[in-house]
């Protein structure tokens, strides 16, 4: 409280102008982003005929809940929801463990062979054998058509590992570890008792990356899961949207069915986004609190 007060007193014209510019900039960005998002919302409850003219500008036009009705009467959606939550929770958990452990190990400058291991990982970001050989690996491991497969396939992201590594390199001071070492503190103890508490922000980022990645992924499921009862939400929605669109432009299908599908696509296009996104959006506020300034080094050093 005291600090805040003294800060306010000291505020100079420079800072006031700076604050003003910051707020104006943010306001512009927020409007530029919020409006299209708002458009999605009102489009999802408007008659598609008007939506395609960009007509509902500020409020829905031709109000209808058909889109949502269409989405929710689909029983598969609920199964998909359950599956997605399952994959997201466990997938994120495993991925987080792998990424944090790996990222920390690689951040240690005193780890012999660290450069080679990094290249070993980075190489896979660029070169791969393609889908077919990967499919046969999965098959030979007996993972085809299992839920485990989906969870495991997202376990290691080299990109995330690099992010964690560089974060720890710049945020966990070398001196801290040396001091701990002198106190006779081992690697395991140091990692769990000091590194992890100091890395809340990056853990939050990785959880977000992994959870959102898992939430949005459908490709593995499309290839490796045959059983429809295991399909995640995104695959089901994608099937509703994209493949229905493709079918509607299939010359071999009869006009009745095509018209039906065309209508369906139009109706659900925007409501699907809302339905698929709302739950994962709720994760963000929980993550956000770890991004607050000064929760880290400052609190420990003293």
């Amino acid at each position: 409280m005291n600090l805040a007060k003294s800060r306010r007193k000291k505020e100079s014209w420079d800072d006031i102008i700076f604050d003003l510019i910051c707020n104006v900039l943010v306001l512009i960005v927020v409007i530029a982003i919020a409006y299209p998002i708002y458009f999605v919302l009102i489009a999802s409850i408007s008659d598609p005929k008007y939506v395609n003219f960009g007509d509902p500008l500020l409020y829905p036009k031709g109000f209808t809940l058909d889109g949502y009705r269409e989405v929710f009467k689909n029983r598969e959606i609920w199964i998909g929801y359950a599956n997605t939550i399952y994959y997201t929770v466990f997938g994120t958990l495993i991925a987080l463990v792998c990424t944090m452990l790996g990222g920390y190990a690689l951040s240690r400058r005193d780890l012999p062979g660290r450069g080679i291991i990094m290249i070993f990982f980075t190489f896979t970001m660029y070169f791969g054998g393609g889908m077919i050989p990967t499919y046969y690996v999965v098959k030979n491991l007996g993972l085809l058509n299992t839920r485990t497969c989906i969870i495991i396939m997202g376990a290691v992201s080299v990109y995330n590992m690099i992010v964690v590594r560089s974060f720890m390199q710049s945020n966990i001071p070398e001196e801290l570890r040396e001091a701990a070492l002198i106190d006779g503190c081992g690697n395991g103890y140091f990692f769990t008792k000091i590194v992890l508490p100091l890395s809340k922000a990056i853990i939050a980022v990785i959880v977000l990356y992994d959870a959102v990645g898992m939430w949005n992924s459908y490709f593995s499921a499309m290839i490796y899961l045959q059983d429809k009862n295991m399909h995640p939400l995104q695959l089901i929605l994608r099937r509703l949207l994209i493949t229905t669109q493709a079918m509607a432009s299939d010359t071999t299908i009869d006009a009745d069915a095509a018209a039906e599908m065309l209508d369906l696509v139009q109706n659900i296009k925007y409501s699907i986004i809302v339905v698929a996104t709302a739950p994962i959006l709720c994760v963000y506020p929980f993550i956000q609190k770890y991004f607050v300034k000064g929760v880290m080094i400052g609190s420990i050093k003293g």
């Binding site: 792998c98 790996g102 005193d110 990982f121 054998g129 990967t134 491991l141 690697n187």
Partner: peptide
């Protein structure tokens, strides 16, 4: 730092199996 190698083991195994094994492609 043997423990650090153990930390890396799951990721290395994963990459070996799912990235390097199919590389004959």
């Amino acid at each position: 730092n043997w423990l650090l190698y153990l930390f890396l083991l799951p990721s290395v195994l994963y990459v070996l199996v799912f990235n390097y094994l199919p590389m004959y492609g």
